[in-house]
Amino acid sequence: MPKTLNPLQLVADRWQPSARFVERAALACVVMSVIIVVTGGAVRLTQSGLGCPTWPTCTEDSLTPTPAMGINGVIEFTNRMLTYVLCAVVGVAIVAARARAPRRRSLTRLGWAQFWIVASNGIIGGITVLTGLNPYIVAAHFLAATSLLTVATIMWLRTREGDDEPRDVVARPVRQLGWVLVVASALLIVAGTVVTGSGRHAGDASKDVHRIPLDWHEVTQLHVDFVYIVVGLTVALWFALRAVKSPEGPRRKVVELFVVIMLQGAIGYVQYFNDSPEVVVGAHMLGSCLMWIAVLRVFLSLRERGEAPVLPAPAGEHEALQTAAASSR
């Protein structure tokens, strides 16, 4: 009975990507994950959430927007098409991680996790349209996109390290403080989705879109409270890292996180005191992504997993390198 051939194995037999290519492919997934969040925000902020009033087609009779739908239909449909670009980028990352030798199953699993999140979020996006921009589904749509960004960021950072068992580079209480920072930051993002769901940018101006029945100002205050908590935890973590004389890497990443939080906070205040102008809200969504990436970088820097594995050189090549090194002495 003929042996079943795995298409990914066939690619691996004929193509050996460099470690740099795999890392850049993973980074491209991070970039596309941010782009899909920002463009999704643009759909809502331009009142184009129902630019295509149904799903998976744009109208009952057309896959693409019609001229009568105007710019809103184009914006909504373009955001849908970007999902396919995202799938293509994730596909390249999966193939590159699978073809790279020695094979690292952890990277391919992270790649496939991204694929299934994209597919699931596409369905959630369709439900969002079919439910007339239900704010709870919209929030789930954004949180799923944040989950994609999380997995993409982890994959990118994992391409730069090995597969050894994680070893803490700081004392356990400091590592636990890092966990608390991650949880607080996640709650901050969730609170931000509630602010969005109760705020004035419903996503479509042509219909009476349901909003979360909460006082927007009170929810915003809760969101700000979480900002203060995250800032306090970030400062506390920096002092803790200095106290235990941690490596320079984690301390530098904490400083980078603090800068991102300060910039994001400034954007948030401008947004609040100017009645949430669309451009500023879009910048705030971008800042949310950058802050979450910075948080993950801080957390993962508190442990190490050795050097990234490399493919041993063939015997003949190894001998040639030794001869060249000896002749250069």
Rank of each mutant, 00 (worst) to 15 (best):
V194M: 15
T153V: 08
H223S: 00
L181R: 09
A205N: 14
D204C: 07
G162Y: 10
T220C: 07
L214K: 05
A202R: 12
D168C: 06
D215T: 02
P213E: 01
T146M: 15
V169L: 06
I212Y: 09
W216M: 11
H223W: 00
V182F: 07
D164I: 08
L222T: 11
A145I: 08
F239E: 13
H210V: 13
G197E: 00
V227C: 04
A236Q: 13
P166E: 09
V219I: 05
E161V: 15
Q221V: 12
V169E: 02
A240H: 05
A205M: 12
I212E: 08
Q176H: 11
E218A: 11
R158D: 04
S198P: 08
L188I: 04
G162D: 03
S147T: 08
Y228T: 07
V174A: 02
D168K: 11
R175W: 09
P166W: 08
E165T: 12
V224Q: 13
V224M: 12
A171C: 02
V227N: 01
R167H: 09
G197H: 01
A171T: 09
G203M: 00
T159F: 08
V194Y: 14
G232D: 07
V235G: 02
Y228E: 14
L188Y: 02
G197W: 00
I212W: 09
G199Q: 01
V174G: 03
D168N: 10
T146E: 15
V194C: 09
R158P: 00
L222E: 13
D225G: 06
A191L: 03
V170Q: 11
P166S: 04
L237K: 06
L188F: 02
H201I: 10
R200I: 11
I189A: 02
V195I: 00
G232Y: 02
T153H: 09
W238V: 03
R167T: 06
A236S: 15
M155N: 12
V190M: 13
I189M: 01
A205Q: 13
R175V: 08
H210L: 15
R172V: 11
T196Y: 01
E218S: 11
L237N: 03
D208P: 05
A152I: 05
D204E: 11
L214T: 06
G199N: 04
I154K: 06
V174D: 06
Q176F: 10
W179S: 12
L148W: 08
V151F: 01
L177S: 04
E161F: 09
F142E: 11
A236N: 10
L181F: 14
L188H: 04
A152L: 08
S185N: 10
S147Y: 03
A184E: 03
S185C: 12
D225Y: 09
R160H: 07
T234K: 05
Q221H: 14
T234Y: 06
L181Q: 15
